[in-house]
Amino acid sequence: MGADYQLSAASSKVALSNRHVKVREEKRGTVIFDTLNEKVYTINETGASILKLLLSGNTLDDTARILAQDYNSDEAAVRSDVIQFVDELAARSLVDKVPAT
């Protein structure tokens, strides 16, 4: 079950959950605005890299592969981090996972 979930999650793409969630790069990280609930979140450079790759259309799997190369890290560990990050954003209704077409 866990492995299946990871597999299907990894082949997903990610989109902002609605048009009122906004993202802006700032001098010290990237900011996500949940304007419907009037909340603001900042993420550091690593989180910003993940989000940027995902919002430009990469699947979670592609994103993990690119980042593993950039950070010279183990791909499975990076994939786990990416999925955890996306789950945290999804739990706050900032992004939705969408099946890759």
């Binding site: 990280g29 009037e38 979140y41 900042t42 690593t46 981090d81 945290e88």
Partner: peptide, 18 residues
């Protein structure tokens, strides 16, 4: 090795709803 994510999540509400 994982990504340097330890401190990626810094949250500050613009308006804090209690």
């Amino acid at each position: 090795m994982s990504l340097p994510l330890d401190h990626w999540w810094i949250r500050f509400p613009l308006l804090r709803w209690r």
